[in-house]
Design a protein around this nucleic acid. Structure first.
Length: 104
DNA sequence: CTATTGACGACAT
DNA sequence: CATGTCGCCAATA
């Protein structure tokens, strides 16, 4: 029954996303580099958007390279709430101490 | 195959 | 620091 409904690209992105520890965040660009496609930050965002594993995988821990929140399929508000719940401070749609909690 | 779209990034102004 | 423009990549029609 376990049939792949995702492309290789998406599977790789999700696999790396799982490694992000709680209380930390990563970026679309870093994720793209992890899948050996450093210029595919945009495609990474698309992959997460289409990703059927919404809360199962920490999609909400992915933010923009400049510390911005980015987007979220269920709404940016929910994304911020989840981050705060995990101890990540968010102010004016930006990650506080971004460089200190970023996971590479 | 081409065109369009989108949870992006870097740079210019 | 805010906004606009261009480039980049994968998925979809």
């Amino acid at each position: 029954m376990s049939e792949i409904c995702l492309t290789d690209f998406e599977k790789k992105v999700l696999a790396e996303l799982r490694k992000v520890p709680l209380g930390k965040v990563t970026t679309y660009k870093i994720l793209a580099e992890k899948v050996k496609k450093p210029r595919a930050a945009r495609a990474v965002g698309n992959a997460l958007n289409r990703n059927p594993f919404a809360p199962q995988i920490p999609c909400h821990r992915v933010v923009k390279s400049n510390g911005g929140i980015g987007g979220y399929a269920k709404g940016i508000k929910v994304k911020i709430s989840l981050l705060k719940k995990e101890g990540v401070e968010v102010k004016n749609n930006k990650i506080v101490n971004f460089k200190k909690i970023i996971y590479k």
